[in-house]
Structure formats: structure tokens, C-alpha cells
Computed example of a mutant assay.
Amino acid sequence: MLVDIDLLLSYDGLIETFNTSDIIFEEGEVPKFYYQVITGSVKLNHITEDNRELIQSILKDGQSVCELLSFIDKTFPVNAIAISDCTIIKVPKDRFLQLMDDHRQAAKDVQRFVAERLYHKFIMMQNNASKYSHVRIEGMLKYFKSFTNDQSPYSYEVPLTRKQLASITGLRIETVIRSVKKMESEKILQIKNRKIYF
């Protein structure tokens, strides 16, 4: 867990459950809470003007959701949607900021998480600018794997469909399918029972 659940509860944290496809918050809303996933998965997405989904991130157990907006007064630039049944703890923004002031180690953990996410986002953006599909896909896989403890080859089971990979990288689904097969033949990733391991 990024921030200890009991600590979040002691600062007026509320635990909520969401079903698959439930909206946690929507683009344009004013953030009133700090959100952290206890169990389940959440996607951050944006719908483009031509009605295509652009997935910005997939968050799992223990990760925070748009924590940057706890520190600034801006509206959400993305939607947060449950992609599995999930449990989330949310803490009122003012209480979360007080928690950060009161607990130095928790504040350092959040700062480090934000810094690592931003670093890997920059790398992913650079990769997404590539004209080569395999560079885009590998960059995105490295980004998601960066949040796991086990960095050994093929240890990360990619929790995304080929369609979601296409949404994240801006590629067509057919291109993703071809590229993933080529990456498997080059031993960059493995496919077992239609699941990608990176």
C-alpha cells in the first residue's frame, strides 16, 4: 500500500466498493478526495473528439488515483473507471494534506510514487512518439511493469487486452496483434494462454 489504510482511516477515510464499469470520478470534476485502490483495478481514460478511448493508466492494489490533484486546484483531466470489482479508500483532500504534514514518511512515499510515475510517463510519451509500433508497446509495458517488485523477464502478466493496448499506444488493434507476435518471436515477451508476460 502506498499509504497505510489505518492511517488513511484515521484521517476520515471512507471505504467504498465499485462494480466493474462503475465511474469513480469524471473528467472535469473538481477533486475533493485523495483516492487509493485497496483491491481491484481502475483505468484512467479520456475520450477523444472522434469518440476513441485513450487509456492513460491502469492502477491496481495499493496505488493512488490521480494523487497529483490533491496538491493543486485543477479539475480531473481523465475519468476513473473500475475495470474489475474494486474497493477504494478516499480521504477528504484537506484531511489528506494534513496527513502529509503530520506524517513525514507517508509524505515521502507519496512524493516518490509521484516522481516515479512522472518519470515513466515521460518515457512512455517519448516511446508513443515513435513511428515503430514495437517501441510504443515495449515502452508502455515497461511503464506498467515499473510498478511491480519483480522485474525479472516475463514476470509481469499484462492485465490489458489487445484492444486496451491499442488504446494506450494509439495504434490500431491489428497492428498491436502483429507487433506482439513479432515481439514474442524476438523473445521480448511471452504469450501463454493468450496472456502477455513481459
Score class of each variant (00 low, 15 high):
98 Q>K: 14
112 R>T: 10
129 A>K: 12
90 K>P: 09
96 F>Y: 12
58 I>Y: 11
119 Y>C: 01
111 Q>H: 10
61 D>Y: 05
71 F>A: 09
46 H>G: 04
68 L>G: 05
63 Q>Y: 08
119 Y>G: 01
60 K>T: 13
79 N>Y: 14
58 I>A: 02
70 S>M: 04
106 A>N: 03
83 I>E: 02
86 C>R: 07
73 D>I: 00
72 I>W: 05
113 F>G: 03
109 D>S: 12
83 I>L: 00
50 D>G: 00
87 T>W: 06
95 R>Q: 14
67 E>N: 04
107 A>W: 06
62 G>M: 03
106 A>Q: 09
116 E>I: 10
75 T>P: 12
75 T>S: 14
83 I>A: 05
85 D>E: 08
74 K>D: 11
92 P>Y: 04
129 A>D: 15
57 S>N: 13
88 I>M: 04
119 Y>P: 00
117 R>L: 11
118 L>Y: 15
48 T>I: 03
63 Q>C: 09
61 D>F: 06
126 Q>T: 07
102 D>T: 01
73 D>Y: 02
76 F>R: 09
96 F>M: 02
125 M>N: 12
58 I>H: 06
113 F>K: 12
61 D>V: 01
87 T>F: 03
52 R>A: 06
51 N>Q: 14
110 V>T: 07
71 F>W: 08
118 L>M: 13
108 K>V: 11
107 A>N: 11
116 E>R: 14
72 I>M: 12
119 Y>E: 06
129 A>N: 15
92 P>L: 06
76 F>Q: 03
47 I>W: 06
76 F>I: 04
128 N>S: 15
73 D>T: 02
64 S>V: 04
66 C>D: 07
101 D>S: 08
46 H>W: 09
95 R>T: 12
109 D>E: 15
64 S>W: 05
71 F>G: 01
68 L>A: 04
89 I>L: 08
72 I>Q: 14
114 V>H: 07
79 N>S: 15
49 E>L: 10
88 I>N: 00
80 A>P: 11
90 K>L: 14
55 I>N: 02
54 L>P: 00
76 F>M: 03
104 R>Y: 15
126 Q>M: 14
122 F>P: 00
120 H>G: 01
67 E>H: 11
76 F>P: 06
52 R>E: 13
129 A>H: 14
91 V>S: 06
59 L>C: 03
109 D>V: 09
53 E>T: 10
122 F>V: 07
90 K>Q: 13
126 Q>D: 15
96 F>E: 09
102 D>W: 02
66 C>V: 05
99 L>K: 10
69 L>E: 11
78 V>A: 05
